[in-house]
């Protein structure tokens, strides 16, 4: 792994086995190998159903690969997400690798502002700094100020998604995994998200993303990886 490499994926394969449906096997991909350097934005390409989301989830430790390794540069260490113990994976997520999805996992009773403040505090920022940064990014994403001190459980899909994006970009991790961040956003907010991604990349964040919107994809990607090349034989 060269010093600039943040992610190095080697020989990763995934097959789902559905034990409760007669042991049906659903091969997804085989022998996926690539690496991502700091400041790069790798876009996963290919038609839906080819396993782009599964690959992203494997990088995050959310899915378990059947083979291969996922080396992540975590501080001064290199950690294999595929074999690391849970607490190591959690520590990597806490400090190094963020996941931006379309869906906000709502925590009861925590306000939007506190959700967004949290990553700044977790990385050692002061209360004042956390509040300032959280307010700035929520404003930038056009979330009405009256919602800031409410828990997002009752927000619309688009509002929840913007809280989620704000949380991910308020203090961007060295690695960001992004899955369809703009799915239910209007053009103005889509543009803000593109800016946020590019700003993070410019500061050295390594990005792996899935973008259905071609325009967004073109404005974000520095490189593309066609996942169909690793299509596993059924």
């Amino acid at each position: 792994m060269t010093p600039a490499e943040m992610i190095r994926v080697e020989g990763v394969s995934k097959t789902f086995t559905l034990h409760n449906q007669g042991g049906a096997r659903l091969p997804v991909f085989r022998d996926v190998t690539f690496s991502v350097r700091a400041g790069e934005a790798l876009v996963l390409a290919g038609p839906s159903g080819t396993g782009k989301s599964s690959l992203l989830r494997i990088l995050y430790g959310n899915y378990l690969p059947n083979a291969g390794s996922i080396a992540i540069r975590h501080g001064g260490e290199v950690i294999d997400i595929a074999s690391a113990p849970p607490r190591a994976v959690l520590e990597v997520r806490r400090r190094t690798m963020g996941f931006v999805s379309q869906f906000l996992r709502v925590i009861p009773r925590v306000t939007a502002l506190d959700i967004v403040r949290d990553p700044v505090l977790a990385r050692g920022g002061s209360e004042a700094e956390a509040t300032e940064k959280a307010q700035a990014i929520l404003a930038r994403l056009n979330l009405p100020e009256r919602l800031w001190n409410l828990a997002p459980a009752t927000f619309s899909g688009g509002e929840q998604q913007r809280v989620n994006i704000a949380r991910s970009f308020v203090s961007p991790s060295p690695i960001l995994l992004i899955d369809e961040p703009t799915a239910s956003l209007d053009a103005a907010n889509r543009a803000v998200v593109v800016d946020l991604i590019n700003e993070a990349r410019a500061r050295g964040t390594a990005i792996v993303g899935i973008f259905h919107d071609e325009d967004v994809r073109d404005r974000v990607a520095t490189r593309a990886l066609d996942i169909t090349a690793f299509k596993a034989a059924a």
């Binding site: 080396a71 001064g76 260490e77 290199v78 950690i79 294999d80 074999s83 607490r87 190591a88 520590e91």
Partner: peptide, 11 residues
């Protein structure tokens, strides 16, 4: 490539 999980990093 070395894959080392250094416990000192984990809390």
């Amino acid at each position: 490539m070395t894959l080392a999980v250094n416990p000192a990093q984990l809390g």
